[in-house]
Computed example of a mutant assay.
Amino acid sequence: MFSAFAGVAQARDSLGLYGDWGAFRDPLVPRCYAIAMAAPSALHRDYQPYAAIGTWPKRSARNQVHFRLSRKMADGAPMVLRIGSERIELTGGGGDAWPKDDSDNAAIVAAMRSATRMTIYSRDSSGRRFSNTWQLAGAASAMDAAAIGCAQLR
């Protein structure tokens, strides 16, 4: 699984690996992020799906959630994240999704700390339903490591 991080982490500092999650710092931007690939699937994929929670200290942006989904989504297709007992509608397009607002962003980050997995459901550009799932063991530690790693980049 972590060999998949090699391309993402080139020219970046590794801050640690925690379960399926990695934490990295990119001092050139500067930014720090926790990232994980979605669970493997034998189904068709247009993209390699991942979830990332990023911090950009010079922009005062912290814990910003972003998802790269496995397929190009249909225009206007609803995207729903199920995490623990919560269901949160996302926004985005193409193969990308993110929370609609800061409140949803904060709710996702908080839920990631206690849930065991999260899954996004949507429809692809051919109208087929699909989902991507991430295991959350290690996510809290990776997010914390990224936040601490960026504290030095202010």
Score class of each variant (00 low, 15 high):
Met1Ile: 00
Ser3Ile: 04
Ala4Leu: 15
Ala4Arg: 14
Phe5Ile: 11
Phe5Arg: 05
Phe5Ser: 09
Ala11Leu: 02
Asp13Lys: 13
Leu15Gln: 04
Tyr18Cys: 09
Asp20Lys: 13
Asp20Trp: 01
Asp20Ala: 15
Trp21Val: 09
Gly22Val: 03
Ala23His: 05
Arg25Thr: 00
Asp26Thr: 01
Pro27Thr: 01
Cys32Leu: 10
Tyr33Thr: 00
Ala36Arg: 08
Ala36Gln: 07
Met37Trp: 05
Met37Arg: 09
Ala39Lys: 13
Pro40Thr: 07
Pro40Ala: 12
Ala42Gly: 12
Ala42Trp: 06
Leu43Gln: 14
Arg45Met: 13
Asp46Lys: 06
Asp46Leu: 06
Asp46Gly: 02
Tyr47Asp: 00
Gln48Tyr: 02
Gln48Ile: 07
Gly54Pro: 00
Gly54Asp: 03
Thr55Gln: 14
Pro57Glu: 03
Lys58Leu: 14
Arg59Asn: 04
Arg59Cys: 00
Asn63Gly: 04
Asn63Pro: 00
Asn63Trp: 00
Gln64Ile: 15
Gln64Cys: 04
Phe67Gln: 04
Phe67Trp: 14
Arg68Trp: 02
Ser70Trp: 05
Ala74His: 08
Gly76Arg: 13
Ala77Ser: 11
Ala77Trp: 02
Pro78Lys: 12
Met79Ala: 15
Met79Trp: 04
Val80Ala: 11
Arg82Ile: 02
Arg82Glu: 08
Ile83Tyr: 05
Gly84Cys: 10
Ser85Glu: 13
Ile88Lys: 14
Ile88Leu: 15
Thr91Ile: 12
Gly95Cys: 07
Asp96Tyr: 12
Asp96Met: 12
Ala97Cys: 08
Pro99Lys: 12
Lys100Trp: 01
Asp101Asn: 15
Asp101Leu: 07
Asp102Ala: 15
Ser103Cys: 02
Asp104His: 13
Asn105Leu: 06
Ile108Thr: 02
Ile108Glu: 01
Met112Gly: 06
Met112Lys: 05
Arg113Ile: 02
Thr116Asn: 14
Thr116Val: 08
Thr116Gly: 15
Tyr121Ile: 01
Tyr121Arg: 10
Ser122Trp: 04
Arg123Val: 10
Arg123Thr: 13
Gly127Arg: 15
Ser131Tyr: 05
Asn132Ala: 12
Trp134Met: 08
Trp134Gln: 06
Ala137Glu: 09
Ala137Phe: 01
Ala137Thr: 13
Ala137Pro: 01
Ala139Ser: 15
Ala139Gly: 05
Ala139Phe: 03
Met143Pro: 00
Met143Leu: 08
Asp144Leu: 08
Ile148Met: 08
Arg154Asn: 06
Arg154His: 10
